[in-house]
């Protein structure tokens, strides 16, 4: 048994251990090294800008307000990014984790970083930041590109107008939350197809289903608590003197909508975390 007496000749333990910053860096490399994920991020920007420009070019036909209106401007500038961005970001969130299960990369990922919640947290941070940033570029870019178009009718609205910057910021963050929602669902279900279907159901179908339920005082405005209604409210102006949240009146303030969207993303992320932590990878 002389072999066991030998000592390692070349191996020297390095100074670098596993760190959260390292896992973050790893997730950034993964996100930016696939055509699919980079393409989805870019398409948030492309769809957002394209819809805003199209609406800007046709706004005269659609009917103009008499005086400059921040609400009118926001409707035109945010709808493309919010509508398409929430779906694209949701699918991106699914791919970031389900794509790993489909390709087997999850094995390499969890061997490199065995603390699974650290991996999920890093994915959530990277997704939230990148989707929010892409939507931010789309929203603030839409405002900048269409500024002249609104100005042609004397309807231009600056970023300093009350609530405007907060609404554009809200739209960006909403798309970020949508990505995290997708990540949570993807982690929970693992299969790409099932996860994408669930993301679409939660974002698109749920408010429709809730609004056609038999109208009772209780369920009548429940759809206002859905994810996509929160997206609408986050990109709208607050009613001056309006309540924080008044379901009976059908009113959700932008601030309340931030919390609703965060809750949706948070709940699914939590469900995903439970599935990931328990049992086998």
């Amino acid at each position: 048994m002389t072999a066991t007496e030998k000592h390692r000749a070349t191996f020297v333990a390095g100074p670098d251990g596993l760190t959260f910053v390292g896992v973050l860096r790893s997730e950034i490399i993964k996100l930016t090294s696939l055509r699919s994920t980079v393409g989805l991020l870019l398409s948030i920007i492309v769809f957002g800008l394209a819809v805003s420009v199209a609406l800007g070019l046709t706004m005269e036909d659609a009917g103009l307000p008499d005086a400059p209106s921040a609400g009118f401007m926001l409707d035109n500038v945010t709808i493309g990014t919010v509508l398409f961005g929430q779906l694209i970001a949701g699918i991106l969130g699914v791919l970031v984790i389900s794509g790993e299960y489909a390709s087997g990369t999850i094995q390499s990922t969890l061997i490199a970083a065995p603390s699974r919640l650290t991996v999920l947290a890093a994915k959530a941070v990277v997704l939230f930041v990148s989707a929010t940033a892409a939507a931010g570029v789309a929203l603030f870019g839409s405002w900048a590109i269409t500024y002249r178009m609104f100005a042609a009718f004397g309807l231009e609205i600056g970023l300093t107008a009350p609530g405007v910057t907060f609404a554009l910021l809200g739209g960006s963050v909403y798309v970020g939350f949508s990505a995290v929602l997708g990540l949570g669902i993807g982690t929970m279900l693992r299969s790409v197809a099932a996860s994408v279907a669930t993301v679409l159901s939660v974002i698109l179908l749920l408010p429709v289903v809730l609004s056609v339920l038999p109208a009772s005082p209780f369920v009548r405005n429940l759809h206002l608590l859905s994810m996509s209604k929160a997206g609408d409210a986050m990109t709208s102006l607050a009613d001056p003197g309006g309540a924080f949240l008044h379901l009976a009146d059908g009113y959700v303030s932008p601030a309340a909508a931030w919390i609703i969207a965060a809750a949706w993303a948070g709940v699914f992320l939590l469900l995903g975390a439970v599935r990931l932590r328990r049992g086998d990878a």
């Binding site: 390095g14 670098d16 251990g17 790893s26 696939l34 390709s103 087997g104 990369t105 061997i111 970083a113």
Partner: peptide
Amino acid sequence: GVLLDAKAAHKGRSAYKHLLAIGATHGI
């Protein structure tokens, strides 16, 4: 160091980026 499944890498990623992403977790 483990090799469990040779297919444990995303088809769309280059070998270099795959290794870089794994190494990044440990500052490699």
